[in-house]
């Protein structure tokens, strides 16, 4: 079958110890049976390894940090589009998604660039601070949580929570605290990096299971693959994992996608207790960094996202996946000429 040529811009090229999903998404797209992709990397920092992975990324452009706002992002994307004729953008960071969601219509109408993102309501409703309400609305168990804005609020946590509890950043980072003093330490560390509020969540004992999934925006689950982390880094990231046969977890995923009419890729982070109960810890509004495991299991979620973005028509849902497939990450040293580093640092493109 002749594959359709398509230009896709992808963010999240930071294939580091706390990896962004960009590189696995690109690997998935490179294995597409329907699309012959040219990959335009969009980077924030000059040392994102994906910039230098020329077998995966054809050309990279730096884009402004999310804190710069939508206007400067739009200007930069306009320039990149004038050179590269982008068909689709796949943003892969939580922190940048808000800007891309805001720009979705403009990019489509003015440049013909398509995306397939959650709506602003979907994005906001699953924010960590709103998750408890989300659980009530969609009938999913969520550990009790509360936002705090100051260390002065820590002593009062005893009235609502029992220790240990989890201290979470607005976008990233989470640490377990066994005493109020540990809460204060984590509060200062996380808020210095990600700002306020800090979310306090009741710790739930059990094993962490995650699902990578994609919804068509009409309530249908196009694909879902559950995984258990087998090897976890000190940052809590999966360094190895295995696909599971867990009907209850798949049913919960389908229920959430149906109930929210989720649009685009997502990752559900859940805890399975010893009693077999599932608690929703987080919904990430984009593919996880382990999404390539889904491809290994027979479900190419990034390819499905392209179909949804391009056609807007019904995409056939995946019915099955391989159970017991594992992924194991590894580190690898790229040797890079200083001229390449110089180019991306000074010209903002490579």
């Amino acid at each position: 079958m002749k594959r359709k040529k398509i230009n896709i811009a992808v963010t999240g090229l930071n294939a580091i110890d706390s990896p962004g999903p960009g590189i696995p998404v690109i690997r998935a797209l490179r294995e597409s049976k329907e699309y012959d992709v040219r990959i335009i990397g969009l980077s924030y920092e000059t040392l994102e390894p994906g910039i230098y992975m020329h077998d995966l990324v054809d050309k990279t452009y730096q884009i402004p940090f999310p804190s710069s706002g939508t206007k400067s992002l739009l200007t930069r994307l306009g320039y990149i589009h004038s050179v590269e004729k982008i068909d689709i953008i796949i943003p892969n960071f939580d922190a940048e998604l808000f800007n891309f969601i805001k720009l979705e219509k403009t990019l489509r109408d003015d440049f013909g660039i398509k995306m397939f993102l959650p709506t602003e309501d979907q994005f906001e409703s699953r924010q960590k601070a709103n998750l408890e309400e989300f659980g009530k609305k969609h009938k999913v168990k969520v550990p009790h949580s509360r936002m705090i804005f100051s260390v002065n609020e820590i002593p009062s946590l005893r009235n609502e929570f029992s220790y240990p509890l989890v201290v979470k950043g607005k976008f990233y980072d989470a640490s377990v605290a066994y005493t109020p003093e540990q809460v204060a330490t984590h509060f200062n560390k996380i808020s210095a990096k990600w700002g306020l509020p800090i979310i306090i969540q009741q710790f739930v004992y059990g094993s962490e299971v995650n699902v990578t999934a994609i919804g068509d925006g009409k309530g249908n689950t196009i694909g879902a693959v559950p995984m258990r982390k087998q090897y976890i880094t000190d940052k809590g990231k999966a360094w190895a994992g295995i696909s599971l046969d867990d009907k209850k977890l798949i049913d919960t995923t389908k229920k959430i996608i149906k109930s929210t009419k989720w649009r685009g890729g997502m990752e559900l982070e859940m805890i399975k207790t010893v009693d077999g109960e599932y608690y929703l810890l987080e919904i990430n509004p984009r593919f996880p960094a382990w999404v390539y495991l889904a491809v290994g299991c027979g479900q190419n979620h990034p390819e499905a996202l392209i179909k949804l973005a391009l056609n807007g028509k019904a995409v056939k849902p995946y019915k099955k996946y391989d159970v017991g497939k594992m992924f194991i990450r590894y580190s690898y040293d790229l040797i890079v000429g200083l001229n390449e580093f110089e180019k991306i640092s000074t010209l903002g493109e490579l």
Binding site: S207, M227, R228, Q230, G241, L244, D245, D246, V323, G324
Partner: peptide
């Protein structure tokens, strides 16, 4: 029922991994 057992004695529980 879904427990897998290989000829080398490797036992795999697909529900828990």
């Amino acid at each position: 029922k879904n427990i897998a057992l290989s000829d080398t004695g490797f036992v795999f529980n697909p529900s828990s991994g």
